[in-house]
């Protein structure tokens, strides 16, 4: 059975200009991500893995090459569409959690829905429901600084799930966490892939996590060094994911989540 490719980087290069000097961060990257897959970008600091993730998230247009999302070039779209892609098609989890300190936990989770124009009650209900799933119900009205790092990262994951996206993108999600919190967060992400059938992309430099994904893309000096497949994506996972994708068209109407 042919694998369905959801995201494909085609000859992606990225060059930054720093004080007149050109620094090439990504060179001719060709990577495909399949539906339902858990892919890890692994490499040392400065290998360009975060930049690649930013390109995939619609945050950094490549200098050369294309990013194809479901057959369409993402950066060929309008700014408006790219923003909408970030809001509803992917969920981003950052190393620094990146929660808004002026909002409560619940409001933070509901923010992507608010940005989409969802009404107050429905988005707050959904936020509460999602937070319940990660065991943070009693913190709904707290503000981010009152929570531990692990709790904040769980909030951030919940926010990434608010619009029910089909891809979860994590940039060193455990980088600022103690090992116990890190294990919890990794477990949640693993379950998102295995149980909730989300496609997961993760950037890490921690070798302990190499057993989690289906496939590991090793990056070195802005180039793909090698790709290692731990195990194939099961046909069932892919199928479920396709079905999920169909449901996602009516994201905001989909209140219940299995």
């Amino acid at each position: 059975m042919a694998k369905s490719i959801v995201i494909e980087a085609k000859k992606v290069s990225k060059t930054f200009k720093l004080q007149g000097q050109e620094i090439q961060v990504l060179k001719d990257i060709n990577v495909s991500v399949h539906s339902g897959e858990y892919v890890m970008f692994y490499g040392a600091s400065g290998c360009g893995k975060s930049t690649l993730l930013n390109v995939i998230c619609g945050l950094e247009p490549p200098t050369e090459g294309e990013l194809i999302v479901r057959g369409e070039s993402l950066y060929g779209k309008s700014q408006h569409d790219i923003t909408e892609y970030r809001r509803s098609k992917i969920g981003i989890v950052f190393q620094q959690f990146n929660l808004l300190k002026s909002l409560t936990i619940q409001e933070n989770v509901a923010l992507p829905l608010a940005a989409g124009g969802e009404n107050f009650k429905r988005r707050m209900d959904r936020a509460a429901h999602l937070l319940e799933m990660v065991g943070l119900t009693k913190f709904l009205r707290r503000r981010p600084p009152e929570l531990s790092g692990g709790q904040q990262q769980r909030v951030a994951i919940t926010r990434a799930l608010a619009t029910n996206p089909w891809i979860i993108v994590c940039d060193e999600p455990t980088g600022n966490l103690d090992s116990r919190s890190a294990d919890e967060v990794m477990a949640i992400i693993e379950r998102l892939n295995s149980k909730s059938k989300r496609t997961v992309l993760m950037v890490t430099h921690n070798p302990e996590y190499l057993h989690f994904p289906n496939r590991i893309v090793y990056l070195k000096d802005g180039q793909v060094d090698k790709e290692v497949t731990n195990r194939e994506v099961t046909a069932e996972a892919e199928k479920t994911n396709e079905k999920l994708d169909l449901d996602l068209r009516d994201l905001l109407r989909d209140k219940e989540e299995k």
Binding site: C57, L59, Q79, H80, T83, E84, Y85, R86, R87, S88, I92, F94, N98, L99, L100, K101, S102, L111, P112, A115, G116, R159, A160, T163
Partner: peptide, 16 residues
């Protein structure tokens, strides 16, 4: 500035 970055990253429009 950071909050603005966060909002934009998670899909809040420039006009918003």
């Amino acid at each position: 500035t950071r909050d603005i970055g966060i909002m934009k990253a998670i899909g809040v429009r420039n006009s918003t």
